[in-house]
């Protein structure tokens, strides 16, 4: 199939960017979206141009590296998949496709479609862990965990840290990401001792990074490739309020 691509091009973090029109010709419909871009890049290179830079690694929907806002939707039109799992058969011959980076103030553009998501690492560093020194753990079966809690915790733990939640949110809020990590750890008995400090620290870091705040649009839930529920945001709100009260009075 043949397509017209409108692609965001930006030389570097401080450069001004603009949309560029690129024709994509003879794209097999079995190709993945990223393979389509590979084909386009191959042609650009042959013709002596500068290929489009885009992030990717595993190409199987688990590493969270690939991004791209496709026709205004992070990870494109298919539900529950990442861009690397999106296939061209979702598009029609002759379509025009708009390809933009994951935009947010806290995700500055590095080049073209590649953005810097290191703010997520700093949020995790602030408190997204259980402190346990290697070698100090008790026997794994010493602490039975209710299956239901384990399952709910798992649902939250499936987050791949791609940042689509931020890209989709009108406020560029990362609360689905932050809430998912908080729920993953806070629902487990191992995570309880640090619950309050974890939540306070992660939320404060999130604010410091210049992200916005959730005003309950649920766009994040709609684009999350792992279909994580916004319930984790509700839990985060509650845990943050309780932790603040405890911090104030205790």
């Amino acid at each position: 199939m043949n397509l017209t691509l409108k692609i965001w091009r930006q030389e570097g973090p401080d450069a001004k960017g603009q949309m560029q029109t690129v024709e994509a010709r003879d794209i097999p419909e079995e190709a993945s979206f990223l393979e389509m871009l590979d084909i386009v890049n191959e042609r650009i290179i042959e013709e002596g141009g500068d290929p489009v830079q885009f992030d990717h690694d595993c190409r199987e929907g688990i590493c969270g590296t690939c991004s791209l806002t496709i026709n205004g939707v992070p990870h494109g039109p298919d539900n529950g998949v990442t861009t690397c799992q999106l296939h061209m058969r979702k598009f029609r011959d002759g379509d025009t496709i708009w390809i933009e980076p994951f935009r947010a103030k806290a995700f500055p553009v590095v080049r073209d479609l590649v953005v810097d998501r290191s703010a997520f690492d700093r949020i995790i560093a602030a408190g997204g862990y259980i402190s346990v020194r290697t070698g100090s753990a008790p026997d794994a079966n010493g602490l039975p965990i209710e299956k239901d809690h384990a399952d709910q915790s798992f649902d939250a733990a499936t987050c791949i840290g791609c940042g689509a939640c931020v890209a989709a949110c009108p406020n560029a809020s990362p609360m689905l990401f932050v809430g998912a990590k908080a729920s993953h750890l806070n629902l487990l008995p191992q995570g309880k001792p640090e619950l309050d400090i974890r939540v306070l620290a992660m939320v404060r870091q999130m604010d410091a990074e210049g992200f916005g705040n959730c005003t309950n649009h649920y766009e994040c839930e709609g684009v999350c490739p792992k279909e994580i529920s916004a319930d984790v945001i509700a839990r985060l709100n509650r845990e943050y309020a309780c932790a603040s009260v405890k911090e104030g009075v205790a």
Binding site: N71, A104, A106
Partner: peptide
């Protein structure tokens, strides 16, 4: 602060869940 966090606007943005009331 939410407007500031969004910074650069998308050329094309499609909503998937939100409502007019919310916006």
């Amino acid at each position: 602060s939410n407007r500031a966090a969004r910074a650069d606007a998308y050329e094309v943005k499609t909503s998937v869940r939100t409502t007019l009331s919310a916006r």
